[in-house]
Design a protein around this nucleic acid. Structure first.
Length: 507
RNA sequence: GGAGGGAUGGCAGAGUGGUCGAAUGCACCGGACUUGAAAUCCGGCAGGGGCGCAAGCCCCUCGUGGGUUCAAAUCCCACUCCCUCCGCCA
């Protein structure tokens, strides 16, 4: 998959998104409470580069102050020139005063921008702080079971897994999926495909009809700003499928590089474009006389034009980012939205895990729940949102347990997460089917998503939550395995029968 | 894919190099008048960052990035998005 060059993200780094020296955590935490923040992050296995941040912060502060002073001087002088001209006076003396200012200011601005870029790069890679109620632990073995619902059924015959059950009538066809797309793709057919659809329909109807969510149909391809808003970029690009046009990029790129004058310039270019594939750049024969500045600028433009879209790994991305760069009125909260979408995941690093069947797919479907709430209500909302996901399993009569994830097992954006794990008879264990998280203000800060707090009349960051309600493919597996009969038929859960033309079982 | 037009504060909309972070109107908030409301009048009203006990001061932002200039909403280049027409298309 094509790797997105860092240059291509120029627009994401814009000031409106990342105010000076800001972090994706509250900037105060990195300035005034650095040691303490580092300790809290360490519980989730993240080493904060404390010394580096301190040094950069000191530089930033100094450069920012100096730059501002110079800017103030320049502005005052320029204004004076304007006024003098209006009065018809001679402006030469003032012009002389301002003479040396430009270069010094420029140098300061460049230095400041460099420091800020470094800080920003660090900040974007820092995960959210775990909430105090999140159990501390290194990995999933330290997750805490908080509830268990339903009794796993006992079978008086040898249970089959979903792959065996799906072999019937070509219901579940991994080979067809592999032929079309490769490993981790599946074709569903016939009654099983319909059951899959029934599950998604049922979930949507439940959440819109009984839980107060608004159904949405959202883009599956989104831009880089959006991916950054919810935390997928820049750190987890390898987990995403992208639609960048690498070949067009390389070809266009080559013609630019050929215009560069020297190897030194090209090396500088590689440094500047840190992250670009070097072999795409390094082609040092060509004409001279073209300024590096021009080439760099041109390069940035090319990269920008080749940057396309990313496939969403979850509808959380599209749903949550709907409030990006906006200020919502207090009476519009809470926002509760849901969508049924395909999800696309590269599954980098999961080689060998769950290779059989459709537990871990590059493409799967999910009904997602998202809430945008005022900060004081987000933990209450997490309990509620999780209960909405649980309701699906309860209505389907699938046994599950609810786990509070520990600090080391939580996702990047989450402050607190509950996983729901459904019972899978063939594996004689509980497997993840939903993950419900309170991201507090972490995503909101990345997105600049705010609400107007009536108490202060000021725009303040909202809190965002998301949860699967549920993963449709895994839910299908759970229904197949838990509801299987000795003859290989599958009993349709009562709540799904209206969606199955009244069928009691599929055979 | 081709041709043209556009992007300014919550909205509408002025502003073609200099006290413009930005007229005016609407909306909104506070006050006056009124028994109350409407109407009218007066005042306030973008976001982010820095300094300060505070009053306040300073910086940045007119789609985005770069350039020209002592000075850019205004001039130049590129990009993005929106609109209109033509072509193609589920």
């Amino acid at each position: 998959m094509a790797r997105l060059p860092t240059q291509g993200r120029a627009t994401i780094m814009r000031d409106s998104c990342f105010p000076e020296g800001s972090s994706m955590l509250d900037p105060v935490l990195l300035r005034a409470h650095l040691t303490e923040t580092a300790a809290r992050l360490k519980t989730r296995g993240f080493e904060l580069p404390v010394a580096e941040i301190e040094a950069l912060e000191a530089d930033r502060k100094r450069l920012a102050t100096e730059t501002q002073e110079l800017q103030a001087q320049r502005n005052a002088r320029s204004k004076a020139i304007g006024q003098a001209k209006a009065r018809g006076e001679d402006v030469a003396p003032i012009m002389a005063e301002v003479a040396g200012l430009g270069d010094k200011l420029k140098a300061n601005e460049v230095a400041l921008a460099e420091v800020q870029a470094k800080l920003s790069a660090i900040a974007l890679g820092i995960p959210n702080l775990p909430d105090a109620s999140t159990p501390v632990g290194k990995d999933e073995t330290k997750n805490v079971e908080v509830a268990r619902w339903g009794q796993p059924r006992t079978f008086d015959f040898a249970v089959k897994d979903h792959v065996e059950l799906g072999a019937r009538h070509g219901w579940l066809d991994g080979e067809a999926g592999a032929k079309l797309s490769g490993a981790r793709f599946t074709v569903l057919r016939g009654q099983l495909a319909r059951l899959h659809r029934a599950l998604a329909q049922f979930m949507l109807d439940l959440h819109t009809g009984e839980h107060g969510y608004t159904e949405c149909n959202v883009p599956l391809l989104v831009n880089a700003d959006t991916m950054q808003g919810t935390g997928q970029l820049p750190k987890f690009e390898e987990d995403l499928f992208s639609t960048m046009k690498p070949y067009a990029f390389a070809a266009e790129h080559d013609t630019v590089v050929r215009q560069l004058a020297s190897k030194e310039q090209i090396r500088g270019l590689i440094d500047a474009c840190n992250g670009l594939p070097a072999d795409a750049i390094f082609d040092p024969h060509g004409n001279d006389g073209v300024a590096l500045d021009f080439a760099l600028n041109k390069l940035g433009q090319i990269v920008e034009s080749q940057r396309d879209r990313y496939l969403i790994p979850t509808a959380e991305v599209s749903l949550t980012n709907m409030v990006r760069d906006s200020i919502v009125e207090a009476d519009a909260l809470p926002i509760r939205v849901t969508a049924h979408t395909p999800c696309f995941r590269a599954e980098a690093g999961s080689y060998g895990k769950d290779v059989k069947g459709m537990i871990r797919q590059h493409q799967f479907e999910k009904v997602e729940l998202v809430q945008i709430v005022e900060p004081s209500k987000s933990f209450e909302a997490l309990e509620q949102l999780t209960s909405h996901a649980e309701k699906v399993l309860q209505k389907l009569e699938l046994p599950y347990r609810k786990m509070a994830l520990c600090t080391g097992d939580m996702g990047f954006s989450a402050a607190k997460t509950y996983d729901l794990e459904v019972w899978l008879p063939s594996q004689n264990t509980y497997r993840e089917i939903s993950s419900c998280s309170n991201c507090t203000d972490f995503q909101a800060r990345r997105m600049q998503a705010r609400w107007r707090n009536p108490a202060t009349c000021k725009p303040e960051l909202v809190h965002t939550l998301n949860g699967s309600g549920l993963a449709v493919g895994r839910c299908l597996i759970a229904v197949m395995e838990n509801n299987q009969n000795a003859d290989g038929s599958i009993t349709v859960p009562a709540v799904l029968r209206p969606y199955m033309g009244g069928a009691i079982a599929i055979a």
